[in-house]
Amino acid sequence: MSRSPGTGAAILATLSHARYVISGNPVTAFAFMLLGLLLFCAVFGPWIVPFDPLASDTAATLKAPSLRHWFGTDALGRDVFSRVVAATRLDLAIAVFSVALVFAFGGLAGIAAGFFGGWTDRIVGRIADTIMAFPLFVLAMGIVAALGNTVTNIVIATAIINFPLYARVARTEASVRREAGFVMAARLSGNSELRIALTSILPNILPIMMVQMSLTMGYAILNAAGLSFIGLGVRPPMPEWGIMVAEGAGSIISGEWWLALFPGLALMLAVFCFNLIGDGLRDIVDPQRRT
């Protein structure tokens, strides 16, 4: 393989650049550590937790945080720590799948709009406008209510409300590059328009889309938790941060603050983590915009 040294060197160069950015930016390093922790919980969570997140224990209901129950127990005697850790998988899965879905559809629609222009641009633009015309959370509620109260539909609803963001970023980036010299050169080399869009435009706007993905990931988590907070999508007794906050919210007045606090903290950390990574990725991808 004569190509591999070049590719290998390119990967090494990217890694060393990433290391350079991270070493100059400890916040990003911290965010990546946090991401590692989240992923670890998502993958191994159900196996490493001390208690079964679904098992109730009537002998130990509404216990305050202690050495045995780090985050305390809820009204059914379930261990809050185990439930918070176990919920990571579901919350991250919703976010990852919805972002992947919107990236595929929104990104491609945006590239088509920006690159081909004309009617494609108008249609994609108006679809995005229509979605933006609704209060997004209300729209998501409506979609889940209409399609049916399932986790899949939460994913779809979250993807739909993020569509305008992706379509518009991709459209702008693609239309900037539409008249670039390398696109014309690709035409002269006999590439079809579709191939140019996929091989010349898409790879070049991918870094910017990655940043966008990381930033919307936090938003997607929040949105999913919000939907389950109001009782849509995920159903009890499944552990999920939004439901847990909803269930615990009523008990705050009666003094059981730990029920809502810990899942809320987990939610906050996850959103925080993805936003920081988004900023860090932007620095890696595009040092010019660094602030």
Binding site: R3, G6, A10, A180, G181, F182, M184, A185, A186, L188, S189, G190, N191, S200, P203, N204
Partner: peptide
């Protein structure tokens, strides 16, 4: 054609070999 701006006319994601090979491939 040879373009005016050598930077702008090369796809940033293509290695030099890939850029030269593009017309040959297509």
């Amino acid at each position: 054609m040879v373009f005016q701006d050598p930077t702008d006319s090369l796809n940033p994601r293509y290695s030099a070999a890939r850029a030269i090979a593009d017309p040959l491939l297509r």
